[in-house]
Amino acid sequence: MKRRLFVASSLSAALAGCAPVTNALNDNPTIHGTLTAGSRLNHFAIGTRGMARIYPDSAIMRDNYPVNSLPTPATAVYAALQRDGFRNYRLPVGGLVDRPQTFTLPALHAMALIDQTTRHDCVEGWSVVGRWKGVLLASLLAHVKPRTKARYVVFHSFDSDQQGTPFYGSIDLHQAAHPQTQLALYFNGRPVPADYGGPVRLRIPTQLGYKSTKWVRSIELVDSFKHIGGGNGGYWEDNGYEWYAGI
């Protein structure tokens, strides 16, 4: 009996010791940095090949499409735009481009739109289907003529977290040129509601949801994102998530 008690107590002590050990390993910057090699291999092996599957409209989940845990921006700028029905919304597209331009909502709506029912895969593990209609990002970029130096497209958002850190995201030009990467204007047949990132949000069905920046305020072409935010290419990336989210 004593022996059994000894075994049980040492087993539970060993289990209780697990979390401190795994936490310490995870907190070691050298180890943590080494792990990102896996993410780079994922990007190399998977990349932006292929097309996200297209779903029938019957698969659309209208009633239970989750809203991101981040709330609709409560900033004065966004609130003012929202009050006027986004009439004064302007989308500047600049940076390393030959013809920087600012687009109004009617100008965006007047472009050729793509309309696709695709699946949204969340990094947490769940999946939903919705119908997204908007400007093909590649055709928007064609208007501003990116310079050959440009490597990434950065999307600045109206959103920020509770500490006031602004939300942003970035993709490379391969992903920007993908025929399913769009600046969505419509969600399930209506203008994208505020909770879902309206009036203009990014939609990338071939990567996880956190890459699809909501409430896009401006677009900037850059050769490096080291000088933006925390330097990792996005708000979630600055919080430890991988820049390449095709997996």
Binding site: L15, A16, G17, C18, A19, P20, T22, N23, L25, N26, D27, H32, T34, L35, T36, A37, G38, S39, L41, N42, V123, E124, W236, N239, G240, Y241, E242, I247
Partner: peptide, 24 residues
Amino acid sequence: PGWITFPGVQDLASGRLWHFFFGW
């Protein structure tokens, strides 16, 4: 529970990094 997850604290981003590295 934390004693069976890696890392022990709830940290999805790090868990994914460990998972993909060791998947390779």
